[in-house]
């Protein structure tokens, strides 16, 4: 069975809080996982005595275990992929903000178009 790195929602109504867990793909969301490797608090918070309006999100993660599980073939979900890519554990999947470079076409294709 596929092992996934995913989020398990805890917290209360209107105040979500997630465990970052390693679990078999077909088990229930909040069932006991193979391992809890971190937490993710999705509510952005301000620093105390900071009026700049800049908010932050707190994540606790055991990066070593995450790397291990990726190494043995665990598949992160999209959200976890995004978080792991911030730490450089995964290649970013979406939202590549770098300017897009057009793919280089095979050399053989160009003369074919130009011929006759």
């Amino acid at each position: 069975m596929v092992v996934k790195i995913r989020l398990a929602r805890f917290g209360r109504k209107n105040s979500p809080f997630y465990n970052v867990v390693v679990a078999h793909a077909r088990t229930a969301r909040n069932s006991k996982p193979l391992e809890v490797i971190g937490t993710y608090d999705p509510i952005p918070r301000a620093d105390p005595y900071d009026d700049s309006g800049r908010l932050h999100k707190d994540i606790k993660l055991d990066a070593i275990r995450a790397r291990y599980w990726i190494g043995v073939g665990a598949q992160p979900t999209d959200t976890v992929w995004r978080l792991l890519s911030m730490l450089g554990i995964m290649e970013p999947k979406y939202r590549n903000t770098e300017p897009r470079i057009p793919p280089v076409l095979p050399r053989e294709a160009l003369p074919q178009q130009n011929s006759p």
Binding site: F17, G38, T39, H56, K57, D62, R65, L87
Partner: peptide, 27 residues
């Protein structure tokens, strides 16, 4: 652009005998 993400490293193997030690992170 919107938020600052703060990743805090912790040791997930430090969970005690039954996996319920006080130092465990998360629900």
């Amino acid at each position: 652009e919107r938020f600052e993400f703060r990743f805090k490293q912790f040791n997930s193997e430090n969970v005690g005998l039954k996996g319920r030690s006080r130092s465990v992170v998360g629900w």
